[in-house]
Amino acid sequence: MLDIRNLTAEIDGKQILRGIDLEIRPGEVHAIMGPNGSGKSTLSYVLAGREGYEVTGGSAEFDGKDLLAMEPEERAALGLFLAFQYPVELPGVGNANFLRTALNAQRRVRGELELDAMQFLKLARARMKDLSMPEDMLKRGVNVGFSGGEKKRNEVLQMALLQPKLAILDETDSGLDIDALRIVADGVNALRGPGFSALVITHYQRLLNYIVPDRVHVLVKGRIVRSGGPELAEELEASGYAGDLAA
């Protein structure tokens, strides 16, 4: 599904990723934990194709294709989804219009029929109900005036509608209370299956109580310094990153 080899990247000439190796197989959920500034968000942006991040070495393949050679929208249409740490507000763009445009753009690339407004609304309403989102969030501007929790739920709604093969959740738990956290986790868990993989990036172990990962990696100073099973997250919660930072 995702195969990253010796990936290095920099921003403004400053090296952030110093050789990442990571393989996620279909159906697996991996977690990346690490202290602030370790390169967690950079990794997610590099994989999603954000401008300003220069890949200086290594490779990243998605479904056997060279991910790094593609435009962001091509990566999305192929089934890569990034849930943003800070979802962007789009004043003047209606949420429903945005979601349908995104869904149909991806369907078009995949040669699937586009959904008309009625079909889309039916689908969106059902997904929103799953996420306990009020229906008027479809009418509002994208993320405009949304609380932190509503923004994160809106990310999960997008994921639920777009049905990606691989979701990268970049600190989706930050700023969520326990109820919102549970709703978000349920949204991810509902997608779990042989056709869905996830990379959960988080600072805290809390989210991983609800989305139990198959593998946990510790990212420090742009390198994965340790990998293990779900128990590694609990260990880090107890002992912190001090030992890894010293290493």
């Binding site: 962001p72 943003f84 979802p87 995104a102 753009a105 991806q106 777009l162």
Partner: peptide, 17 residues
């Protein structure tokens, strides 16, 4: 970038904005 990361091609994304 937010729009493109959701699969909306660059030109269409510009128009939306």
């Amino acid at each position: 970038f937010y729009l493109r990361a959701r699969g909306i091609p660059a030109e269409a994304a510009r128009r939306m904005l």
